[in-house]
């Protein structure tokens, strides 16, 4: 089941997007997310669609792979759409099912909300598909660097994130091992209601935590013995430097955001109710 979740995974490929500075990708993703909430009419949505699909094309990540990432949010999506559809009032009533009225406004918000959510997931998963976890933490560290002035331990947070990423597969493997060991001793993990299932997780979680702490202790020792002493005086093996393609990416995304803003502000187009 865990393997089904593609959000947050890295998709190795050689594309312009993969080569971009992680900071650019983080900032541009944020700008894209902002743009989604500035969208007001058909034209700006069309613009967002064109923008997103061009970027997907550039990334060389298969479209199918991106769509797979939408799977886990289908439920949330359905709930949002249904709630918006029936509970938003305004405009003419389009049709009525029992006591639930569907209004123009309701249909509009429901459709827009669905598109926003889908694009939001597609946009942000595109970022993680094209950025290695390490590059991502490096980018975050560099972007949040100014927070150091107000005593936020930015380097430590980034280091923690990258260590967590490094240990996820190891801990997953370990969980698997412990589960098998407990099943071999007759533990019943499958049957029973939610409460019983949750209870049967205890003999898995306890040894997992114990071993995680042991690992953490070992790792801390290994890091200290390799002269780790926090971020001060540390040099970078792969320092982040902006190149010309990074500047172009910034310019394009900012241009797109401004266009969306202006369209929302000044262009009034109405296609039926949208």
């Amino acid at each position: 089941m865990i393997r089904d979740i593609t959000i947050g995974q890295y998709y190795p490929a050689k594309s312009i997007l993969h080569r971009l500075d992680p900071r650019v990708k983080i900032v541009c993703t944020l700008l894209f997310l902002i743009s989604l909430f500035l969208n007001k009419n058909v034209i700006s949505y069309a613009l967002a669609t064109v923008f997103l699909f061009c970027v997907i094309k550039l990334s060389k990540v298969p479209f199918k792979f991106i769509m797979k990432g939408l799977k886990p949010i289908i439920m949330i999506l359905m709930i949002t759409v249904v709630l918006n559809l029936f509970l938003t009032s305004g405009g003419d009533v389009l049709f009525q099912v029992w006591k639930l009225k569907v209004t123009e406004e309701g249909l509009r918000t429901a459709v827009y909300m669905a598109i926003r959510l889908i694009y939001l997931i597609m946009g942000s998963s595109l970022m993680t598909f094209t950025t290695t976890p390490n590059a991502l933490t490096d980018g975050i560290e560099k972007l949040l660097h100014p927070l150091n002035k107000i005593k936020v331990p930015v380097h430590e947070i980034a280091m923690m994130m990258s260590i967590a990423l490094r240990f996820i597969p190891i801990l997953l493997e370990e969980t698997d091992k412990i589960m098998k060991a407990q099943i071999a001793r007759g533990a019943d993990l499958e049957s029973g209601n939610i409460l019983q299932k949750a209870k049967s997780m205890i003999p898995i979680l306890v040894p997992l935590f114990v071993s995680a702490f042991r690992r953490a202790n070992d790792l801390a020792m290994a890091m200290e013995s390799r002269c780790y002493r926090g971020g001060d005086g540390r040099t970078k093996m792969k320092p982040l430097v902006y190149g010309s393609s990074d500047r172009i990416a910034y310019a394009v995304t900012w241009g797109y955001l401004i266009a969306v803003f202006l369209i929302g502000r000044f262009v009034a187009v109405k296609l039926w109710i949208f």
Partner: peptide, 29 residues
Amino acid sequence: VFQNPDNQIIGTVVEEDVGFGPENLGVPT
């Protein structure tokens, strides 16, 4: 060099892990 091979590798890529020590020492890139 410690006993457990998993618990002493810090980097998510081999070369980054090897670079971890020199990075800490402040060696130029």
